[in-house]
Design a protein around this nucleic acid. Sequence first.
DNA 1: CTGAAAGCGCTTACAG
DNA 2: CTGAAAGCGCTTACAG
Lengths: 340, 340
Amino acid sequence: MTTPRRRRPTMADVAERAGVSRTLVSFILDGKPGASDETRQRVLAIADEIGYRPDSAARLLAQGRSRTLGVMSDIRQLFEAELITHIYPAAEKLGYEVLLSANLPGRTEPTVVESLLSHRCGALILLGPKAGQDFFDELASRVPVVVACRRLTGLNDEVPLATVRTDDAKGIRQAVDYLVDLGHHHIHHVSGGTDPGSDDRQEAYCRAMRAHGLAGESVVIPGAHNEEAGAEAARTMLAAPTLPTAVLAGNDRCALGILDVFTRAGVDVPGRVSLMGFDDSRLSENPRIDLTTIHQDAGEIARRSVELAVSMLVEGPSRATDVVLEPQLIVRGTTAEPPR
Amino acid sequence: MTTPRRRRPTMADVAERAGVSRTLVSFILDGKPGASDETRQRVLAIADEIGYRPDSAARLLAQGRSRTLGVMSDIRQLFEAELITHIYPAAEKLGYEVLLSANLPGRTEPTVVESLLSHRCGALILLGPKAGQDFFDELASRVPVVVACRRLTGLNDEVPLATVRTDDAKGIRQAVDYLVDLGHHHIHHVSGGTDPGSDDRQEAYCRAMRAHGLAGESVVIPGAHNEEAGAEAARTMLAAPTLPTAVLAGNDRCALGILDVFTRAGVDVPGRVSLMGFDDSRLSENPRIDLTTIHQDAGEIARRSVELAVSMLVEGPSRATDVVLEPQLIVRGTTAEPPR
DNA sequence: CTGAAAGCGCTTACAG
DNA sequence: CTGAAAGCGCTTACAG
């Protein structure tokens, strides 16, 4: 159907023009030894001249497994976009390509994964996946998998499945400790529902409250890691007889939604209610937002994920690894002592 | 090097188990006619049973040009992430796959494009590219190209190059008209530098100021479409003897940076200075930000881009098309009458 | 230092 | 309704 375009040059074209075999061209382009310097120069010049570009599809097919890392991400999450910016250079440094595919409403995780796999990605990095444990086990039996920003329980030495994440529990513990230090007792938590890290954060919240003798004050409001869910949770809180003095949101975006509704409703933050997020995404530091939050190290998460993916790809399974990174409390303007 | 993993099933495996030829399996999997219903059922069942998945790399190689759309995006731009969420369903509807690759600092547009092309994308959609005109001409001679969110001058019928964009000039004109109506004369523009749409926006700003007899008041401060550039521009303005009464930023992110610095410096927005953005990205409507801005229709831009890409891919060149969408003024809380 | 040949997994005329 | 065969562009032992 396509109008025949100027056919793109192949290795065979280069070989013919240079009067050498395709094999040799392949070697030269690959930087392998086995050609005289003179031949090398000539072949390179010709390749350049006729505009030769390697064909990844053919290369992948011929090589079997590939030097390509497949990355699944919900690109609307600022924090994941940030991770990706760090994944590219880390992969390139190790000589790997990156293929991106987005999981979005209407594009489920299995769909994304199959797409990546069908393009022969040699290993997968999944950013904040929501699938069930079984999904990862099954997947890792087919290809090495690194799960970022989520804790998994089924890690073992049989299967190339690893995780890289921030210590969510510790981060939440820091947050609660900080709020309690300020004098807060009525601290509510808006959970992230099925979103990455939510379980740990919620559990850590309950445990921390208990540790402070505030078990009776624990209130978890179901939510998700986006603005709409935060807004909804804020409405729920506003409808209740009394407001808490502090709210610990599932993540920054959720906190933004809460801030939205509270602000519109005339609830002073932090005068009346203190608010905290989680992630420390780009917007948190804008002084109009100025959100107190827990910082995650995107660069480190990205680098470790890439390194693990490559190492499993090269060395095969038996690597059960759970990389846990330190969170960091970032105090900004949405938190203060409780009123009066 | 890779530890031999359970080899993934191929078409040949399916054919063998089913006792038919690979050709027939290919036909059946493709939904083409040419197999009895009974055979079809059996083959499908076997494929499913042994977990057969098509190999895109092999398919692409065999088919020549592909049913894959390559999308280049700076995923850190919220607005582009939004575009992508609409590109997937639009492509799927037409039976096309999408491959994503990110242009980022350290990963230039030519790099991204070559990567996409080497994976045999049949057409390219470039979101807000910054490259020079020549780059697109040369590229379009190799593959159909749709440029989104940027105006190009060199469109002709010879080469499959098309653009889809919002009428930037009109949007800026709306913004200036609105500010002038409010009573503003001292309106500064923070330009987007080399970022997409910047030239048109800047020129439209100058023209609109002139149309209102305010040519003498025109001030353009160089910037870019991100928070840092906005912050820098705000500092420049603060250092000048007098502040304008209104600022028209190159886009929303730039406006956020300006808001940041102004707020920290105690400049009341909109009491002392009115501020406008461009894009209407997700954060603009947060009441802490509450940014008056110009709305772009992400869904429509995405759909039109996909349709154009596919139509050029199928029908070949000769389609010089420039789709121009309507902008929309969104009045929120960062604009008001000038002080006193 | 160099080349002939097989193969990666699929598609697609062509021929029954 | 079904199959044998060539080919997509590359890599990679193997053999000089």
